[in-house]
Every structure is written in C-alpha cells, then in structure tokens.
Design a protein around this nucleic acid. Structure first.
Lengths: 237, 237
DNA sequence: GCCTGTGAAGCTATTCACAGCT
DNA sequence: AGCTGTGAATAGCTTCACAGGC
C-alpha cells in the first residue's frame, strides 16, 4: 500500500479493461481525456494514475493502446508463471455465485478450492473447484500456496475463518461478511458490505427524492402566489 | 450528498448494527472507544460521525445504546409508513443470490420487482418477487413508486437499463456491472465492481508476499555473512 | 493548437489535542 | 481520572494550471 494509492490500483484495472476493448475495436492510440471519459474520471486523474507505471505517451498521439496495456499488466498482474491462487469459504447462494463469477476471469488468478462447514457439500465439485471441510483449510492453503481468500460465510464465522486463512499464508481477503475483520497490518482486506451499500443507496435515493419534492413544492407555492419575480427563476432566457 | 459525507453514512449503518447487538446483550450504555473497537475505526471517528445526529452522550456514561440507536434510525431510515421500494434487473446467478440476501433484511426497504430480458423467467416468482420483462420496467417502477435499483445485468446492458430506471424515477442505484454508469448528478450510484476489487486484493496480497520474501532473503543473506551488527536487528532486547 | 507530465493548490476525510464536564 | 464535543492540524486524493513538445 505504499507504492501506489489503493484508489489508483482500482482505477488501473478499469483502464486496463477499457484498453482491451479499444484494442478489440482496432484503436492504436488514445488520449487521456478519451480514456477518462470511458472510465468516468477526469483526464488529469488518468494522467496522474499512469505516472506510477513509468510509461509515457506523446503529446502528438497520446498513449499507445498496446504498450500502455502491457505496462498496466506488468504492474498489476503477476507473471503467468507465478499464477496466484485463491480460495473461497462459504459455499452458500452467494458463494456459488461468486465462484461462477470469478471462474476463468483472469489467467493470473484462479480459485482452486472452497471450504464449508456443512458436511453435505464436502468433496463435491462446485463451480469448478473441490469443496473441502473447513478443518482442512490450513492444510490446503499451505499445500497449494493460496494467497487470496474470499469470505462468504455467515457473519459470526468470518473472523474465525479469516484467522485460519491468515495463519496459513493468505495475504489478501475479500470479506462479504458484515463483521469488520481484525487482521495483521500486512494483510489487505477489501470489505464488501452489501447491506451497508444498500442502506447508503437507499439513504441518498431518499434525499434526492426529498429535494425534488421540496423544489416542486416551492414551485407550487410560488405559482399559487401569482408568478412573482423573486429569486429561483428556472429556464434561463 | 451534502448533509453528511458519504463515508459517514456508511459507518453509521455499521454503528447501528453494533448497537443492535449491544442491546441484545443487555448493554445500556457505551463509550466511543468501545463502539469504535467493535466497528474497527478510531474513537475520534465515531465521535465525529455522531455529530451529524445531534445526539450527544455524557462524559460519565458515554452514549445510551437505545437512544443512540433510535437517533441513527431516524436519520438513516425512512419512517415505517414511507417504506422504500427497490427493483432488481438481471435475474442470473448473482441476481438471485442478491434477491435472497436482501429479502426481509430491512422493514424499511423491500425489493418488490425484478426484471429480465430472458423470456423463460417472466412471471415466475423468484426470490419472493415477481419477475417482469424488462420492457415493463418503466411502468412497474412508476406504478409502485420504486426509488432504488439494483443492476445485476451483463455489462453491455447496464447503461441502457440504468437510463430506463432513472427516467422512471429511480434515484439510487447499486451497479454490479463493470460499466461505470453515466447518470444525472441527482442520482446516487454505488459502483460495486467485484472484478476490480478482486484484482486489487490480488495485487496487495502479492505485494505483501513479496515484501515478506524480501525480508526473508535479506535475513538469509545476513545470516550467511555471519551474524553482523548492522541495522535491521530484530527482537529488541 | 492541443497534447502530456507534473509542481502546486485545493478538497475531503481523518486524527490530534484539549477545554469542559462529572 | 476519564469521558465527550470540537477547533485545529494532518494526511491523502484530486484538480488546476502551465511548461515543454510536436
């Protein structure tokens, strides 16, 4: 988390995707402001983000799609021979959806195992990878050198599973449980709290509705008073 | 997005949950630093966040669990008679998992409809709510006064569906597609880009591994040179 | 003219630190 | 002594704005 701000890392993967699409469309060069428009950020943001790569474009043609993409890949992804491995804990509805979603998405990162407390699911192959009892987690993680963990277990169990994962060598965790995890500083945790996100979306949606209604009411009140010449005139001449 | 920073809104829902648990455990009061520990933030952060509520604790006993919780509810959630409604687009694996996850989670927010392009799914009741063809979205959203939208459709279709939703009155969107949405400023969008999050987790996990190995190598090199008295001595006396 | 790369300015969010209370 | 509420300081991120290049 020192070599580049974590926001930048996130945006780089978005740029990478955009560049892939651009390459597919046969574009060979792109300007920062066009890349920015496609990724919904500002041009200055793009240029600033790309500084971490040590690749520079030219004023004349902007960035070379192919080269920029390669630079991002080198920076973001491991070399093919160092493929990273991930494991998922909690093979419920959500866990299965995640397994399907992530399977085959990146050649450099593969989910190779899943863990469950429910004995019905052991040894079955779900979403393309074997399901082990949670008790075997440490062994499997160490044996296969798994570095990334995905937690889709019930809230209560999240911390416990995280501890096992970290102890066994996992250094990055996606946590879908709503328990904020306690982990050593060297472990990166991405908290994905869908219930929280939902509450927030609902909150701001309500706000927006409210202010639209307020504006509407103010308008009606004004209309009722006979079109006055106060402040708040809409539709500039 | 003006009345309180969006980060604060997010944390308030976390505090709310913690307070609910505390109430269940029979606690009547709580200090900021204890609440902070449970929510994995700093005490100063908690106190700062609570300022938006206009509720204040006492130095002697801290915050009253019951009252603080009520204040957060009043602030965050709509009144019971103004229940908010949500709709989901895209009833795939992910969409179904989301329907199950969110169903019945909040009395103040209910998913009342889902939309699909795939004709096989129309009119069935999936995850507790009726599935309509996407063409009926505008009608249903307007008819039921739906304000929140959840997008779990393929990337290509996300923008199109978002436009329909917004036009019909939706003011908050959870976007699970990896297309950054273009929406009017008054619409709040929570971009939940799981592929991006995964790339980031993998990146930082790799970093952590790397620096552990580097430290290990440095140690080995030092050992090989015969225990020298340079910088970097571990285990303080 | 219109681009990139980047120092400097500007913002936003978080943390510090302390007055005031009990 | 140990807490809350909050102005002030700090840190982190984004945008501005412009030198330099074609």
């Amino acid at each position: 988390m020192e070599i580049a701000p974590y926001r930048t890392i996130g945006r780089l993967t978005r740029y990478w995707r955009t560049l892939r699409d651009l390459a597919a469309e046969g574009e060979s060069h792109i300007y920062s402001h066009l890349l920015a428009a496609k990724a919904q950020v500002t041009a200055a943001q793009v240029r600033r983000d790309l500084m971490v790569l040590g690749y520079t474009g030219t004023p004349a043609r902007g960035y070379e799609v192919k080269k920029l993409r390669e630079h991002i890949e080198t920076f973001l992804f491991p070399a093919p021979e160092n493929q990273q491995k991930a494991a998922l804990a909690g093979v419920g509805n959500f866990g299965r959806a995640l397994l399907k979603f992530f399977s085959g998405r990146r050649p450099t990162l593969k989910i190779v195992a899943s863990f469950e407390a429910d004995a019905d699911k052991f040894d079955r192959v779900i979403g393309g990878c074997r399901c082990y009892p949670i008790e075997k987690a440490a062994e499997v993680i160490r044996g296969q050198d798994i570095t990334v963990g995905i937690l889709a277990v019930p809230d209560r169990e999240a911390q416990e599973v995280a501890d096992i994962f970290v102890e066994a060598g996992v250094r990055g965790i996606m946590n879908f449980a709503r328990t904020p995890l306690q982990t050593p500083e060297s472990v990166y945790v991405e908290e994905i709290d869908l219930a929280m996100s939902m509450d927030r979306v609902a909150f701001f949606a309500r706000q927006a509705r409210q202010s639209e209604q307020d504006a509407q009411n103010a308008q009606n009140a004004q209309d009722a008073c006979g079109a006055g010449g106060g402040a708040g005139e809409r539709r500039a001449p």
